[in-house]
Nucleic acid binder design. Structure first.
Lengths: 209, 209
DNA sequence: CCTACACTGGACTGATCGGTACAACCCGTG
DNA sequence: CACGGGTTGTACCGATCAGTCCAGTGTAGG
């Protein structure tokens, strides 16, 4: 735990922050490649070119490092959801935008997302609770869009909770193969996925409202 | 490594086999709850009510235990795919049946599936290679059905590879919440999922063939 | 009843785990 | 040049890791 969270970042503080961020990113790569528990402190030190003393000057504990990786992902995902909410539009448009934003995060942070989806049970206590809250908040955003679409007559009478799980699965599972520098970009995937899903739940044209 | 794989199972051998299967199942529960690397040998011994010597009389190594869990899942999943192929039917029917079979496995073996989806990178060497082959074989079954559906005019002109990933994600991701004794059964989920996906990729009625 | 062997518990091993203590270092400031 | 605090490497800690070894114990076959 840092001594005082107060005092805005001076120059030195900014440097420390940057180094810490670099450590978080490097460690995410290792955790993604071989797992959180399977990665030792010494490996983290090697990868970051640091001794144990120096490493612990930045991170406090191994689990805090894990939590930082989770936060990085959740920050991005929730920010994306906020942008979508601000943009407005019909429920189908909202859902398509949510998908594009989510796939963009998965594409830009493949290691962080991998860690996030695999190692979240390793978080304990306060950190685990906070993480669950944020994750749940995001899932409810998706559910809300689906519910709104049903009420507005854009979508047929589907179960918002169950359908949100289908949508989340379809998108989140791309973490296995959606990587930067690969054949497919995030946009290449977002469009076909939105097509499938929106056609899959659209109201039959006969009873449009 | 067992001395000789020959000689068909006598009574004793069957008993040994049953005990081993029980150990695999119990261990799957532990691995699912806290992770493969985070679960120690002593915990496995406690849960199975066995000493280390006795445990190692059945399993050979911790990784072999992990591999046995993977095999259990892959056996079931591939058998389900075989049943579907034997049953025949149109591509849409085939896809719906594949989904029902897959969700059934996930629902019946929640712990095994969790381990399978989280810890497969922990497999090494020969075991990892064999696992990847089998997993890939299943994925290609799904792709084949999609491709057949496009050629037959049942589905619109989608990318079979990408669409298979969407389908796999939607179904596999249910491992997070689809558990026996819960509100929803496998069938409760399979039907809505098939509805969404089939509507999502069906050929527009105007150009049916 | 005796022997043989599948089966079992638990002490033990060397390695490695996450984490700490501390002395030295760099480097900007006075 | 002296100083002082942010930074760093390293020796070290107790705990635990996966796995081995072996002296038994229960029991089935002769």
């Amino acid at each position: 735990m840092p001594r005082a969270a107060a005092k805005d970042g001076t120059r030195r503080n900014a440097k420390w922050e940057a180094r810490r961020a670099a450590i978080v990113d490097t460690s995410a790569r290792l955790f993604a490649a071989q797992g959180y528990h399977a990665t030792g402190l010494t490996e983290l030190c090697d990868a970051n070119d640091l001794g144990k003393g120096a490493l612990y000057h930045y991170i406090g504990s191994k689990e805090e490092l894990l939590a930082a990786i989770h936060d990085r992902v959740m920050d991005e995902v929730l920010q994306g959801a906020d942008r979508v909410a601000e943009a407005g539009g019909t429920p189908p448009e909202q859902l398509a935008m949510l998908g594009a934003e989510l796939l963009d995060v998965i594409h830009r942070y493949p290691d962080h997302v991998w860690v996030f989806l695999h190692e979240f049970p390793a978080l304990t206590g306060e950190r685990a609770a906070q993480f669950r809250t944020r994750r749940r908040a995001y899932e409810q955003r998706v559910e809300a869009v689906l519910r709104a679409g049903v009420e507005a007559g854009d979508f047929r009478d589907i179960d918002p909770w169950l359908t949100a799980r289908a949508w989340l699965g379809m998108h989140n599972y791309t973490y296995l193969w959606l990587k930067p520098g690969q054949r497919l970009s995030a946009r290449d995937v977002a469009q076909p996925f939105a097509d499938i899903f929106l056609k899959g739940i659209e109201a039959s044209p006969s009873r449009t409202r």
